[in-house]
Amino acid sequence: MTVSRESFYGPLDDVSGDAGYTEHPERVGFFTDTSVCIGCKACEVACKEWNLLPDDGFDLLGMSFDNTGELSANSWRHVAFIEQPAPPRESAPAREADAVDLGLPSFDLPGAGTGEETRTDFRWLMSSDVCKHCTHAGCLDVCPTGALFRTEFGTVVVQDDICNGCGYCVSGCPYGVIDRREDDGRAWKCTMCYDRLGDGLEPACAKACPTDSIQFGPLDELRERARERVATLHDRGITEARLYGEDPNDGVGGDGAFFLLLDEPEVYGLPPDPVVPTRDAGSMWARAGVAAAAFAATAVSVFFGRSRR
C-alpha cells in the first residue's frame, strides 16, 4: 500500500483496503430513498435508543414537523420536512377549469384563491439525513489524534476513547454533520452502528424504518438498486427523482450514505457540491512524502533504541 493522490480525492475502489485492511468485508452503506419516507422519525429514536444518546432539548422549531433542526452530537439521524409547491405533472388536470366552475372571483377575499385549485400543486417532502461516511472523509483526514478512523466496513467512526475534543473535524466536514457535545466537548456522529455491524446486525435506524426508506447493505448493491429505483420513478413521471452522493467522481469520492431526492439538494439542507477539504493532501504528500518518511524512520529508530536499553 502506497500513499497516493487517490487516497485523498477521486474514485477509490477499495476504501477499506486503502485504510490498511488487507482482508475486509464489503463496504457497506445507507441508501435513503426519500420518495418513500413517511417522516415518522423512527430512525431518530432507534438511533438514540441503541446508541444511548441524550435528548436534544424540547424546542418547538416551527419548521413544519421538524423539531430536531439538524444533525448534531446528540442527533445522528435528522428528518427534514419540506412543504413546497409540487412540480406540474402531465396527468394533473387543468386547474383553470376549476376556477371557472367556482364562478367566483379569485382575488382579495382571504381564502378566495385557495380553494381546491392548487391542491395537487402542493407536496410535503421528508428525508432522513445522516453522516455520509464519505469515501474521502474530511473529518478523518484532519483528525490529529486518530480518534476518527475508517473501519473495515469502509465507514467512518469517532472513537470516543481517543477523541480529545479539539474540534478540527467539525470544520473538516463538508456536510456540517459532525458536532461536539456541549458537556464533554468530544465529537460525536453516526457510527453506522459499528458495534452492530461486527455482529452481523444492521444499523438500528435501517432496521426500524417502517417503509424501508433507509436501506442498509453493501454499497455496490445499494447503488445498483438506487439506479433502478430512479428509473422506475422516471417511468412513472417522477422526473425530478435524482441520486445524491452516489457518484464516486464527486468531491468526496462518493458517499457511503447516499440519497434519492425529489428536489435540489439545497432544498433538503444538503450542500449541492461538497468537496473534501483535504482534496490536495495527496499531492502535498507526494512532495512531503520523502521527508516525512525519513523523519518517521528516525523517530522509530530512536524509540526502538530506547526500548532496547
Partner: peptide
Amino acid sequence: ADRLGRGDAAAS
C-alpha cells in the same frame, strides 16, 4: 498496510 494511519492502525 495502513500507512496513513486512518484505518486499521488507528483503531482504539
